[in-house]
Nucleic acid binder design. Sequence first.
DNA 1: AAGATACTGTGTAAAATTTACACCCTTAAA
DNA 2: TTTAAGGGTGTAAATTTTACACAGTATCTT
Lengths: 231, 231
Amino acid sequence: METVLPTFNSVFSIDCVIFGFEAGELKILLIERNQEPFKDWLALPGYIVEQDESIDDAAERILYELTGLRDLHMQQFHTFGEVNRHPQGRVITVAYYALIRINGQKELRPVTQYARKAFWHPVNELPKLAFDHTEIFETGFNKIRRRLNYQPIAFELLPEKFTLTQLQSLYEAVLNKKLDKRNFRKKMLSYGFLKELDEKQKGVSYRAAKLYKFDRRKYAKIFNNELNLDK
Amino acid sequence: METVLPTFNSVFSIDCVIFGFEAGELKILLIERNQEPFKDWLALPGYIVEQDESIDDAAERILYELTGLRDLHMQQFHTFGEVNRHPQGRVITVAYYALIRINGQKELRPVTQYARKAFWHPVNELPKLAFDHTEIFETGFNKIRRRLNYQPIAFELLPEKFTLTQLQSLYEAVLNKKLDKRNFRKKMLSYGFLKELDEKQKGVSYRAAKLYKFDRRKYAKIFNNELNLDK
DNA sequence: AAGATACTGTGTAAAATTTACACCCTTAAA
DNA sequence: TTTAAGGGTGTAAATTTTACACAGTATCTT
């Protein structure tokens, strides 16, 4: 009886769909590849998992190496395992997503040679991507659209202090539909996990809006209660 | 510049969490392993993906080989990639789930030597399982609990013709809570995808209940409309 | 055949949530 | 001081969700 694992020329890789939000627009992070196959193509940040690292660790490392970004909360969302998805051999890829605040200060700078550069690109009008990355992106986008309804992921995309209008336009960008201003505010505030600050928006040429903060503690409390008091 | 894939001693495997429903109880399919590691342990049906098959194909094949079951609609739900989850080397496993009618006629019979037998086991009071299979099961169970609310997966577990009480007790088993009979019926029927048959339950020692069928066409129509008419 | 048993099948009112909808206010810039 | 741009607010109607109880019927028992 066989008791030893077979050796195939098979590798695991990770691909990352990283969402950001800027100027009312939803964007994702792309790289320009500097390596065959698909040299010079645009692609999702992705690379091969090392033998001695978990896939979660690999996802963090790979994103960092290709884009310079660190300490994101990445979550796996799907695994792509068609036989010929990679032209050089059998590669199964586990796709992760994360949402982050786009921040002018944080420079996007690949620390390996595999990517020539990394940059934000609006999710609408995405160019052709390497491998099956377009499909991976679509799958990921659908997932976060779903999760937006039951997880507080929107706040990861916004600056720490934000206005209700910014929050609403983020929801509109992800869900791709217009929402009613009064109803949106009523509902968001009714959850009780938004903290109104004594501060206002600055630098706008119109009446400045109040700033709010997402209160993680309150959110956790509410969420746990829901689970515990389950009828 | 490296342009060829590295060769690691890494393999992909598939593990299956197959749910069934019988006698008002939710069950999953387990095997008794006949191979090291974890020889003689109970485990989820799972095995290694071949080099030339997609992971979806592998899932079908592996389930068939270990249990004799075929033609299920399996869906991947999570990939487990901790470094030491398999004692013999680096194995990443993609976990799939499916829901099926338990049917006395369909015999569970492994067609490989890797499993000694396959059998149904209630999801409550699961024994210790091989590898990280307990965690895989828990993750899968949580997923279907969620999906029950927005996908018609319940009907895959029931016989083609079923009573509303059977449907309700399935929901109660998966969600692990009591539901109100009148409200449950009102809501289910209001969707419009249950077809009332001219037939009644047989072989019960009390008033026989009406039988219903799940109408896939109507379901699809309703579901598509929802998507298309999206405001 | 009478009674016991076990589950079927049904309606309504109250409460909660969701939806639709429009205008005055404030700030900065011109 | 006027204009431009978005800020901020309330209510009524419609819809959905919740809570709740009992008579009806088939079978089995004695």
